[in-house]
Design a protein around this nucleic acid. Sequence first.
DNA 1: CTCGAAAATCAACTGAGTTGCAATTATAAT
DNA 2: ATTATAATTGCAACTCAGTTGATTTTCGAG
Lengths: 143, 143
Amino acid sequence: MSDRCNFSHWLALEGLRATPVRLAMLEILGEASRALRAQEILELIRTRRRVNKVTVYRILEDFSRRGMVRKLSLEGRVNHFELACEHHPPHPHFQCQTCREVQCLEPVALNRMWTELRGPLGNRADHIEIRIEGLCHKCRNIS
Amino acid sequence: MSDRCNFSHWLALEGLRATPVRLAMLEILGEASRALRAQEILELIRTRRRVNKVTVYRILEDFSRRGMVRKLSLEGRVNHFELACEHHPPHPHFQCQTCREVQCLEPVALNRMWTELRGPLGNRADHIEIRIEGLCHKCRNIS
DNA sequence: CTCGAAAATCAACTGAGTTGCAATTATAAT
DNA sequence: ATTATAATTGCAACTCAGTTGATTTTCGAG
Ligand SMILES: [Mn+2]
Ligand SMILES: [Mn+2]
Ligand SMILES: [Zn+2]
Ligand SMILES: [Zn+2]
């Protein structure tokens, strides 16, 4: 994924400087096979350089507002983040009740449903988030 | 809604005592036209009686585990709760980016989609949560 | 180089939710 | 009725992801 995106260019398009922290965060998110928590991103950056957690939180919030990153509201009070570049279209997520792990699922076509989901009134619907809760294959084998 | 459910009986079925706090919480959730935060439930009970917030959180957690109440993971770190009785089937929710208000939408038929959503592996899917984010009609008129 | 804006740091804070334990209340046994 | 038992509630202190505001550092334009 990260090999398909030019992060420096992307940042320039957004009018943001390609700082080491921003680049590191985009690379980490690009290489991840699942949505990451801020804490995980922080730890991964710290294998390369010294960073303050506030910096990571502020950049994630900024990326999220710009739509460069999706912030997932999953079970629990910890947000998960994933790249929202053109190669990562929105998709549902599966979360295991036991190990709390989050899997990315294949995108689903909503088509007809989308009109129902914008609500009955004059609402404007911008994003949809689909979360499936259950027991993952690993935890099923254990119990 | 509350007039269609016998809460004392429901609690008995679950093997729970019909205590004043439990009954008050079910009545409040039953009368609500939208999902409520723990804090809101607490304030509503306190118009009737003196209660500790820990009691409310513990009962909500218990109801949630038993499937009597649905805990919604919406944007932000505040959970919302709604009755999960037979008269309240699961349904998507709309949340406004501006006022943060949560609306309950009509249930949608997932049918074919459901199989895609349980994930590619040996996962067992138990619940689905659909959250739509956007701008509500009230906030649209203001801006 | 110099200066102002952008970015990063630091310490202190916030607040929803949790934990452990004590006190109370309801239920069962004698 | 009285006691033993378990369920429920209360209290205080805690957790921890995320935030805030003020300060320092870095960077790029002139
Ligand atoms: Mn994903
Ligand atoms: Mn609802
Ligand atoms: Zn699992
Ligand atoms: Zn609104």
